[in-house]
Write a protein that binds this DNA or RNA. Sequence first.
DNA 1: AACCCGTGGGG
DNA 2: TCCCCAAGGGT
Length: 350
Amino acid sequence: MDAKRSSVWPAIADDLLRWYDAHRRDLPWRARPGEAADPYRVWLSEVMLQQTTVATVRPRFAAWIARWPDVASLAAADEAAVMAAWAGLGYYARARNLVKAARMVVANHGGAFPSSEAGLRALPGLGAYTAAAVAAIAFGERAVVVDTNVERVVARLFAIHQPLPGARPAIRAAADTITPDARAGDFAQAMMDLGSSICTVRAPRCLLCPIRGACRALAEGAPERLPTKAAKRARPTRYGTIFWLERDGAVWLVRRPEKGLLGGMRALPTGPWNYEPPALADAPAAAEWRMLETRVRHGFTHFEIDLALAVARGDAQGEGEWWPIAELDGAGLPTLFAKAVVAVRKEGVA
DNA sequence: AACCCGTGGGG
DNA sequence: TCCCCAAGGGT
Protein backbone atom coordinates (compact mmCIF):
# COMPACT_ATOMS: atom_id res chain seq x y z
CA MET A 1 0.00 0.00 0.00
CA ASP A 2 1.27 3.37 -0.98
CA ALA A 3 -1.53 5.41 0.46
CA LYS A 4 0.42 8.61 0.94
CA ARG A 5 1.98 8.93 -2.48
CA SER A 6 1.48 12.36 -3.96
CA SER A 7 -0.03 12.76 -7.35
CA VAL A 8 2.32 12.69 -10.32
CA TRP A 9 0.15 15.18 -12.18
CA PRO A 10 -0.73 17.90 -9.63
CA ALA A 11 -1.90 20.29 -12.35
CA ILE A 12 -4.78 17.98 -13.25
CA ALA A 13 -6.03 17.86 -9.66
CA ASP A 14 -5.63 21.64 -9.33
CA ASP A 15 -7.64 22.36 -12.46
CA LEU A 16 -10.29 19.85 -11.51
CA LEU A 17 -10.66 21.18 -7.95
CA ARG A 18 -10.93 24.75 -9.23
CA TRP A 19 -13.72 23.63 -11.55
CA TYR A 20 -15.38 21.73 -8.68
CA ASP A 21 -15.36 24.80 -6.44
CA ALA A 22 -17.30 26.68 -9.09
CA HIS A 23 -19.63 23.97 -10.40
CA ARG A 24 -20.16 21.37 -7.68
CA ARG A 25 -23.63 19.89 -7.47
CA ASP A 26 -25.65 20.64 -4.35
CA LEU A 27 -26.64 17.20 -3.07
CA PRO A 28 -28.48 16.44 0.21
CA TRP A 29 -25.72 14.16 1.52
CA ARG A 30 -22.94 16.55 0.65
CA ALA A 31 -21.52 18.80 3.39
CA ARG A 32 -21.40 22.52 2.64
CA PRO A 33 -17.91 23.86 1.95
CA GLY A 34 -16.13 24.21 5.28
CA GLU A 35 -18.59 22.01 7.14
CA ALA A 36 -17.56 18.65 8.54
CA ALA A 37 -19.01 15.65 6.75
CA ASP A 38 -21.23 13.24 8.66
CA PRO A 39 -19.78 9.72 8.14
CA TYR A 40 -23.23 8.15 8.57
CA ARG A 41 -24.72 10.25 5.78
CA VAL A 42 -21.73 9.73 3.54
CA TRP A 43 -21.85 5.98 4.07
CA LEU A 44 -25.62 5.75 3.60
CA SER A 45 -25.56 7.82 0.42
CA GLU A 46 -22.67 5.83 -1.03
CA VAL A 47 -24.50 2.56 -0.45
CA MET A 48 -27.75 3.92 -1.88
CA LEU A 49 -25.86 5.22 -4.91
CA GLN A 50 -24.33 1.84 -5.72
CA GLN A 51 -25.59 1.19 -9.26
CA THR A 52 -28.41 3.61 -8.59
CA THR A 53 -28.98 7.07 -10.04
CA VAL A 54 -28.82 10.33 -8.10
CA ALA A 55 -32.41 11.13 -9.13
CA THR A 56 -33.65 7.87 -7.60
CA VAL A 57 -31.63 8.24 -4.41
CA ARG A 58 -32.50 11.85 -3.61
CA PRO A 59 -36.00 11.33 -2.15
CA ARG A 60 -35.16 7.94 -0.66
CA PHE A 61 -32.18 9.41 1.19
CA ALA A 62 -34.31 12.16 2.73
CA ALA A 63 -36.99 9.72 3.88
CA TRP A 64 -34.37 7.40 5.33
CA ILE A 65 -32.62 10.15 7.30
CA ALA A 66 -35.95 11.31 8.70
CA ARG A 67 -36.62 7.81 10.00
CA TRP A 68 -33.12 6.68 11.01
CA PRO A 69 -31.04 9.86 11.50
CA ASP A 70 -27.88 8.19 12.85
CA VAL A 71 -26.06 4.86 13.13
CA ALA A 72 -27.45 4.13 16.58
CA SER A 73 -31.06 4.41 15.41
CA LEU A 74 -30.38 2.20 12.40
CA ALA A 75 -28.59 -0.37 14.53
CA ALA A 76 -31.63 -0.53 16.79
CA ALA A 77 -34.10 -0.78 13.91
CA ASP A 78 -36.26 -3.80 13.16
CA GLU A 79 -34.68 -5.53 10.16
CA ALA A 80 -38.03 -6.26 8.49
CA ALA A 81 -38.87 -2.54 8.66
CA VAL A 82 -35.54 -1.70 7.06
CA MET A 83 -36.11 -4.17 4.25
CA ALA A 84 -39.56 -2.73 3.62
CA ALA A 85 -38.11 0.78 3.57
CA TRP A 86 -35.63 -0.33 0.91
CA ALA A 87 -38.35 -1.85 -1.31
CA GLY A 88 -38.11 -0.63 -4.89
CA LEU A 89 -34.44 0.34 -4.67
CA GLY A 90 -33.15 -3.05 -5.76
CA TYR A 91 -30.02 -5.02 -4.84
CA TYR A 92 -31.56 -5.90 -1.50
CA ALA A 93 -28.35 -7.31 -0.03
CA ARG A 94 -27.45 -3.63 0.42
CA ALA A 95 -30.24 -3.21 2.99
CA ARG A 96 -29.32 -6.38 4.86
CA ASN A 97 -25.67 -5.29 4.99
CA LEU A 98 -26.65 -1.77 6.06
CA VAL A 99 -28.21 -3.15 9.23
CA LYS A 100 -25.32 -5.54 9.85
CA ALA A 101 -22.73 -2.80 9.39
CA ALA A 102 -24.62 -0.36 11.63
CA ARG A 103 -24.77 -2.98 14.38
CA MET A 104 -21.04 -3.68 13.99
CA VAL A 105 -20.22 0.02 14.24
CA VAL A 106 -22.20 0.27 17.46
CA ALA A 107 -21.00 -3.02 18.97
CA ASN A 108 -17.35 -2.98 17.90
CA HIS A 109 -16.47 0.69 17.35
CA GLY A 110 -18.42 2.49 20.05
CA GLY A 111 -20.83 3.97 17.52
CA ALA A 112 -18.16 5.79 15.49
CA PHE A 113 -17.26 4.68 11.97
CA PRO A 114 -13.69 3.52 11.42
CA SER A 115 -11.82 6.33 9.66
CA SER A 116 -9.32 4.24 7.73
CA GLU A 117 -9.97 2.69 4.37
CA ALA A 118 -8.99 -0.75 5.71
CA GLY A 119 -11.26 -0.42 8.74
CA LEU A 120 -14.18 0.58 6.55
CA ARG A 121 -13.48 -2.21 4.08
CA ALA A 122 -14.07 -4.74 6.87
CA LEU A 123 -17.73 -3.70 7.21
CA PRO A 124 -20.28 -5.66 5.15
CA GLY A 125 -21.41 -3.89 2.00
CA LEU A 126 -18.30 -1.73 1.73
CA GLY A 127 -16.11 -2.87 -1.13
CA ALA A 128 -13.06 -1.22 -2.62
CA TYR A 129 -14.97 1.73 -4.02
CA THR A 130 -17.21 2.54 -1.05
CA ALA A 131 -14.47 2.14 1.56
CA ALA A 132 -12.23 4.51 -0.41
CA ALA A 133 -15.06 6.99 -0.98
CA VAL A 134 -16.06 7.15 2.70
CA ALA A 135 -12.43 7.39 3.84
CA ALA A 136 -11.84 10.29 1.46
CA ILE A 137 -15.15 12.15 1.69
CA ALA A 138 -15.98 11.67 5.37
CA PHE A 139 -12.45 11.57 6.83
CA GLY A 140 -10.24 13.35 4.32
CA GLU A 141 -7.94 10.35 3.84
CA ARG A 142 -6.05 10.10 0.61
CA ALA A 143 -7.73 7.14 -1.08
CA VAL A 144 -7.95 6.16 -4.73
CA VAL A 145 -11.67 6.33 -5.43
CA VAL A 146 -12.67 4.54 -8.62
CA ASP A 147 -16.31 4.23 -9.60
CA THR A 148 -17.75 3.97 -13.10
CA ASN A 149 -17.45 7.74 -13.60
CA VAL A 150 -13.79 7.72 -12.65
CA GLU A 151 -13.19 4.69 -14.85
CA ARG A 152 -14.57 6.58 -17.82
CA VAL A 153 -12.71 9.82 -17.09
CA VAL A 154 -9.39 8.07 -16.48
CA ALA A 155 -9.70 5.70 -19.45
CA ARG A 156 -10.13 8.78 -21.64
CA LEU A 157 -7.56 10.97 -19.92
CA PHE A 158 -4.86 8.30 -20.38
CA ALA A 159 -6.30 6.78 -23.57
CA ILE A 160 -6.55 3.30 -22.09
CA HIS A 161 -7.96 1.18 -24.91
CA GLN A 162 -7.94 -2.19 -23.15
CA PRO A 163 -11.55 -3.34 -22.59
CA LEU A 164 -13.23 -3.45 -19.17
CA PRO A 165 -13.16 -5.24 -16.84
CA GLY A 166 -9.59 -6.24 -17.74
CA ALA A 167 -8.50 -2.60 -17.78
CA ARG A 168 -9.40 -2.02 -14.11
CA PRO A 169 -5.89 -2.47 -12.67
CA ALA A 170 -4.41 -0.09 -15.24
CA ILE A 171 -7.19 2.44 -14.66
CA ARG A 172 -6.73 2.30 -10.91
CA ALA A 173 -2.98 2.77 -11.25
CA ALA A 174 -3.55 5.77 -13.51
CA ALA A 175 -6.12 7.22 -11.10
CA ASP A 176 -3.54 6.90 -8.33
CA THR A 177 -1.14 9.14 -10.25
CA ILE A 178 -3.60 12.06 -10.32
CA THR A 179 -5.03 11.72 -6.80
CA PRO A 180 -3.79 14.55 -4.56
CA ASP A 181 -2.87 14.34 -0.88
CA ALA A 182 -5.02 17.28 0.06
CA ARG A 183 -8.78 17.52 -0.50
CA ALA A 184 -9.03 13.84 -1.42
CA GLY A 185 -12.78 13.83 -0.83
CA ASP A 186 -13.39 16.87 -2.99
CA PHE A 187 -11.18 15.40 -5.68
CA ALA A 188 -13.18 12.16 -5.71
CA GLN A 189 -16.48 14.02 -5.90
CA ALA A 190 -15.07 16.33 -8.56
CA MET A 191 -14.16 13.33 -10.72
CA MET A 192 -17.66 11.93 -10.29
CA ASP A 193 -19.33 15.25 -11.04
CA LEU A 194 -17.15 15.61 -14.12
CA GLY A 195 -18.07 12.11 -15.28
CA SER A 196 -21.78 12.66 -14.81
CA SER A 197 -22.06 16.13 -16.32
CA ILE A 198 -19.13 16.66 -18.74
CA CYS A 199 -17.31 13.43 -19.48
CA THR A 200 -20.54 11.59 -20.27
CA VAL A 201 -20.90 8.18 -21.89
CA ARG A 202 -22.27 9.16 -25.30
CA ALA A 203 -21.55 12.77 -26.16
CA PRO A 204 -18.91 14.22 -23.83
CA ARG A 205 -18.91 18.03 -23.60
CA CYS A 206 -15.18 18.32 -24.07
CA LEU A 207 -15.34 22.06 -24.78
CA LEU A 208 -16.45 22.59 -21.17
CA CYS A 209 -13.96 20.17 -19.62
CA PRO A 210 -11.48 21.72 -17.18
CA ILE A 211 -8.82 19.08 -17.95
CA ARG A 212 -9.29 18.79 -21.70
CA GLY A 213 -5.72 19.95 -22.27
CA ALA A 214 -4.43 16.76 -20.64
CA CYS A 215 -6.89 14.36 -22.30
CA ARG A 216 -5.18 11.89 -24.61
CA ALA A 217 -8.46 10.43 -25.91
CA LEU A 218 -9.53 13.91 -27.00
CA ALA A 219 -6.18 14.36 -28.71
CA GLU A 220 -6.75 11.06 -30.48
CA GLY A 221 -10.05 12.42 -31.72
CA ALA A 222 -12.75 10.05 -30.38
CA PRO A 223 -13.08 10.24 -26.58
CA GLU A 224 -16.65 8.88 -26.71
CA ARG A 225 -15.26 5.51 -27.82
CA LEU A 226 -13.60 4.95 -24.43
CA PRO A 227 -13.73 3.00 -22.28
CA THR A 228 -14.30 -0.12 -24.39
CA LYS A 229 -16.15 -3.02 -22.84
CA ALA A 230 -16.31 -6.77 -23.26
CA ALA A 231 -19.41 -8.08 -25.01
CA LYS A 232 -22.35 -8.95 -22.79
CA ARG A 233 -24.19 -12.23 -22.62
CA ALA A 234 -27.76 -12.41 -23.87
CA ARG A 235 -30.54 -12.30 -21.29
CA PRO A 236 -32.69 -15.46 -21.31
CA THR A 237 -36.41 -15.46 -20.47
CA ARG A 238 -37.72 -17.56 -17.62
CA TYR A 239 -41.32 -18.41 -16.81
CA GLY A 240 -43.18 -18.89 -13.57
CA THR A 241 -46.42 -18.36 -11.66
CA ILE A 242 -47.37 -15.85 -8.98
CA PHE A 243 -50.08 -17.01 -6.58
CA TRP A 244 -52.64 -14.57 -5.23
CA LEU A 245 -54.47 -16.30 -2.35
CA GLU A 246 -57.18 -14.16 -0.80
CA ARG A 247 -59.32 -14.48 2.33
CA ASP A 248 -61.44 -11.86 4.14
CA GLY A 249 -59.90 -8.89 2.38
CA ALA A 250 -56.34 -10.08 2.98
CA VAL A 251 -53.76 -11.70 0.74
CA TRP A 252 -51.20 -14.33 1.68
CA LEU A 253 -47.62 -13.05 1.75
CA VAL A 254 -44.41 -14.94 2.36
CA ARG A 255 -40.84 -13.88 3.06
CA ARG A 256 -38.26 -14.90 0.52
CA PRO A 257 -35.11 -16.76 1.63
CA GLU A 258 -32.30 -14.55 2.96
CA LYS A 259 -29.95 -15.34 0.11
CA GLY A 260 -30.57 -15.12 -3.60
CA LEU A 261 -32.88 -13.04 -5.73
CA LEU A 262 -34.97 -10.52 -3.76
CA GLY A 263 -33.54 -12.12 -0.63
CA GLY A 264 -35.30 -11.38 2.64
CA MET A 265 -38.07 -9.42 0.97
CA ARG A 266 -41.79 -9.82 1.58
CA ALA A 267 -43.40 -11.34 -1.51
CA LEU A 268 -46.32 -13.13 -3.10
CA PRO A 269 -45.72 -16.89 -3.30
CA THR A 270 -44.28 -18.12 -6.60
CA GLY A 271 -43.58 -21.51 -8.07
CA PRO A 272 -40.22 -22.46 -9.56
CA TRP A 273 -38.79 -20.21 -12.27
CA ASN A 274 -38.05 -22.37 -15.29
CA TYR A 275 -37.31 -22.01 -18.95
CA GLU A 276 -40.64 -23.77 -19.66
CA PRO A 277 -44.20 -22.36 -19.63
CA PRO A 278 -45.74 -22.03 -16.16
CA ALA A 279 -47.63 -24.57 -14.08
CA LEU A 280 -49.37 -24.61 -10.70
CA ALA A 281 -46.50 -26.32 -8.93
CA ASP A 282 -45.75 -25.06 -5.42
CA ALA A 283 -49.12 -23.38 -4.92
CA PRO A 284 -49.51 -22.21 -1.31
CA ALA A 285 -52.83 -24.05 -1.04
CA ALA A 286 -54.96 -26.67 -2.74
CA ALA A 287 -57.60 -24.39 -4.18
CA GLU A 288 -59.48 -23.70 -7.39
CA TRP A 289 -56.88 -21.55 -9.08
CA ARG A 290 -57.90 -19.30 -11.93
CA MET A 291 -55.33 -17.86 -14.35
CA LEU A 292 -55.64 -14.15 -15.06
CA GLU A 293 -55.32 -12.77 -18.58
CA THR A 294 -52.62 -10.33 -17.52
CA ARG A 295 -49.08 -11.59 -17.24
CA VAL A 296 -46.25 -9.91 -15.38
CA ARG A 297 -43.01 -9.30 -17.26
CA HIS A 298 -40.01 -8.01 -15.39
CA GLY A 299 -36.37 -7.58 -16.33
CA PHE A 300 -33.54 -8.43 -13.99
CA THR A 301 -29.86 -7.85 -14.63
CA HIS A 302 -29.14 -11.25 -16.14
CA PHE A 303 -32.54 -12.66 -17.13
CA GLU A 304 -36.11 -11.68 -17.85
CA ILE A 305 -39.10 -13.24 -16.14
CA ASP A 306 -42.58 -13.82 -17.61
CA LEU A 307 -45.03 -14.71 -14.87
CA ALA A 308 -48.60 -15.99 -14.99
CA LEU A 309 -50.98 -14.90 -12.25
CA ALA A 310 -53.05 -17.57 -10.48
CA VAL A 311 -55.80 -16.31 -8.15
CA ALA A 312 -58.00 -18.14 -5.66
CA ARG A 313 -59.83 -17.80 -2.36
CA GLY A 314 -59.12 -20.11 0.53
CA ASP A 315 -56.87 -20.99 3.44
CA ALA A 316 -53.11 -21.10 3.26
CA GLN A 317 -50.57 -23.74 4.20
CA GLY A 318 -47.06 -23.19 5.46
CA GLU A 319 -45.22 -20.08 6.61
CA GLY A 320 -46.53 -16.63 5.80
CA GLU A 321 -48.90 -13.85 6.85
CA TRP A 322 -52.29 -12.50 5.85
CA TRP A 323 -51.85 -8.90 4.74
CA PRO A 324 -54.80 -6.50 4.36
CA ILE A 325 -55.17 -5.84 0.64
CA ALA A 326 -56.01 -2.18 1.27
CA GLU A 327 -52.63 -1.74 2.99
CA LEU A 328 -50.44 -3.49 0.42
CA ASP A 329 -48.56 -0.28 -0.36
CA GLY A 330 -47.00 -0.54 3.08
CA ALA A 331 -45.90 -4.16 2.66
CA GLY A 332 -42.63 -3.21 0.98
CA LEU A 333 -43.02 -5.48 -2.03
CA PRO A 334 -40.27 -5.48 -4.67
CA THR A 335 -41.31 -4.02 -8.01
CA LEU A 336 -42.02 -7.40 -9.60
CA PHE A 337 -44.75 -8.11 -7.03
CA ALA A 338 -46.01 -4.54 -7.02
CA LYS A 339 -46.72 -5.08 -10.73
CA ALA A 340 -48.68 -8.23 -9.87
CA VAL A 341 -50.76 -6.30 -7.32
CA VAL A 342 -51.67 -3.75 -9.99
CA ALA A 343 -52.70 -6.54 -12.36
CA VAL A 344 -54.92 -8.27 -9.78
CA ARG A 345 -56.58 -5.00 -8.79
CA LYS A 346 -57.35 -4.35 -12.44
CA GLU A 347 -58.79 -7.78 -13.28
CA GLY A 348 -60.17 -8.73 -9.88
CA VAL A 349 -60.27 -12.13 -8.20
CA ALA A 350 -64.02 -12.79 -8.70
C1' DA B 1 -12.73 -15.19 -12.35
C1' DA B 2 -17.22 -15.29 -13.76
C1' DC B 3 -21.55 -14.99 -12.16
C1' DC B 4 -25.22 -13.39 -9.30
C1' DC B 5 -27.87 -9.47 -7.64
C1' DG B 6 -32.95 -4.71 -9.19
C1' DT B 7 -34.70 -0.86 -10.94
C1' DG B 8 -35.96 3.30 -13.56
C1' DG B 9 -34.61 6.56 -17.05
C1' DG B 10 -32.49 8.06 -21.46
C1' DG B 11 -31.49 7.65 -26.32
C1' DT C 1 -39.35 -1.12 -28.39
C1' DC C 2 -34.99 -2.26 -27.01
C1' DC C 3 -30.60 -1.58 -25.26
C1' DC C 4 -27.54 0.71 -22.25
C1' DC C 5 -26.52 2.55 -18.10
C1' DA C 6 -25.99 4.07 -12.98
C1' DA C 7 -21.24 6.92 -6.71
C1' DG C 8 -20.69 -1.90 -6.90
C1' DG C 9 -20.39 -5.92 -3.67
C1' DG C 10 -20.39 -10.78 -2.59
C1' DT C 11 -19.11 -15.33 -3.74
